[in-house]
Design a protein around this nucleic acid. Structure first.
Lengths: 236, 236
DNA sequence: AACGAGTGAATTGTTGAACAATTCTGCTGT
DNA sequence: ACAGCAGAATTGTTCAACAATTCACTCGTT
């Protein structure tokens, strides 16, 4: 019976990649990527006509895609005015870190004995970050850092926490893009990440959580200070 | 300067109730209420034509509303098949409780010194629950219980946690409606809630968190056991 | 020159119809 | 009983139109 159940499981995971591809979702995927890469700067207005013409989709479909991204908090919708790439306020950045503390340290402190595969994910993210830092590829260092924290949250073993964390880190990128001169922002924390991963591997999760708490405080302070200097973007 | 700032604040909070009322959102509000009240049972299919005719809105507008509720996880969308009121699986119920543990006990353990107004909210929810129990109004007991846990989460002082918790409790109602004979489900926990509120009021948040943990374990066990008996609803 | 009112242009909100793509339904024949 | 097939029903998507609202600009007044 074991093999039969495995078939079902594999089948279910493939299903979505085959048939389920609505245009609105693909449009949303595109826009999301642009926003996260920084091609669409916070505050930018996305007019239905221009975007629709550029992507060759109807206004209705485009509006469905907009709704999706508004709900993900990457865009904001002002009635009768249009949709804009979201501009995070300082308060919102602070709140983002508040939730990170709750989720990430909670995942560490509450987890019984995390699946070894998840602990391995932690290590892989650290390795990748250090490799990228050696090569001076700061963008890669940033992504590896995000992956690390995603892996920390996933120690909770909850699909929903994973999803929330994904969205949360995506929003945080909105703040990163606004700021100049933060290429090497994540670099000093690489050593910290390794230490945290080691502590988790050794089963000292409470201690790892404490260290993570300190990291989050420091990163938040640094980010908020920088962000306050240019709340509307570096060019305003 | 204080009064001027207050004006701005009040203005901003009123703005949304005045102009911002898109049809799609109002439709979504209606549907959400129906789903949460149980009028639309989990598994029910919402055809675009019927719903559109009943609510007197166009298909496009209705589809926007559907997207909203799908993203809130109250509806599910199957490509080329339509939208259905979501049917929670047992795994998903378990995950819901996992996140509740993280959020609620985290809000208690991590909070420094919660705002006294929030602690008062806790007490009010308890009072209301006990009053409703005296009057044997079990539905009201349920709502008061939800309000209590919402108030617990809000001790974190994070708008985003509040929002997540709201959505999470809404989803949980999907599970409640499926189950028969659970009118008095929440009643035994009223005393627990009062004790937790007292502990928080006395500043013993860690102890309150422990008690809350036990409550969540017990409630989850009970709910899952009942839910397993009739995963597709009481009439299947 | 600064400022407010007002007018027209541009954009969004919403609808309805149309057609393509897919799924559902019921029939048929074996 | 069951596989296959045709037609009906439903969803996916686009287009065109109009109402409602905001934006941008001019104009006249001070």
């Amino acid at each position: 019976m074991g093999t039969a159940e495995d078939w079902v499981e594999l089948l279910a995971s493939d299903r979505e990649s085959l048939d389920r591809t609505s245009t609105a979702e693909r449009v949303a995927d595109l826009l999301r990527q642009r926003v996260l890469e920084g091609g669409l700067a916070p505050g930018t207005r996305l007019s239905e006509e221009s975007a629709g013409r550029a992507l060759a989709v109807s206004r209705n479909t485009l509006r469905e895609a907009f709704r999706l991204l508004v709900h993900e908090r990457l865009l904001v919708h002002e009635f009768h005015r249009g949709v804009f790439v979201r501009v995070l306020s300082v308060d919102e950045v602070v709140d983002l870190y508040r939730v990170r503390r709750l989720l990430e340290t909670g995942a560490l402190r509450n987890s019984e004995e995390p699946a070894p595969e998840r602990v391995a994910d932690l290590g892989r993210a650290v390795d990748e970050g250090e490799r990228a830092a050696r090569d001076r590829e700061w963008h890669e260092v940033g992504t590896a850092n995000m992956r690390f924290h995603q892996a920390v949250a996933s120690l909770a073993g909850s699909p929903r926490v994973d999803e929330t964390m994904r969205q949360l880190l995506a929003e945080l990128r909105l703040a990163f893009h606004v700021m100049p001169g933060l290429r090497e922002f994540h670099e000093p924390y690489l050593e910290n990440n390794r230490r945290i991963a080691e502590l988790v591997g050794a089963g000292h999760r409470a201690e790892a959580a404490n260290r993570l708490d300190e990291y989050l405080d420091a990163a938040e302070t640094q980010l908020v200070a920088e962000y306050r200097r240019c709340p509307g973007g570096p060019h305003r």
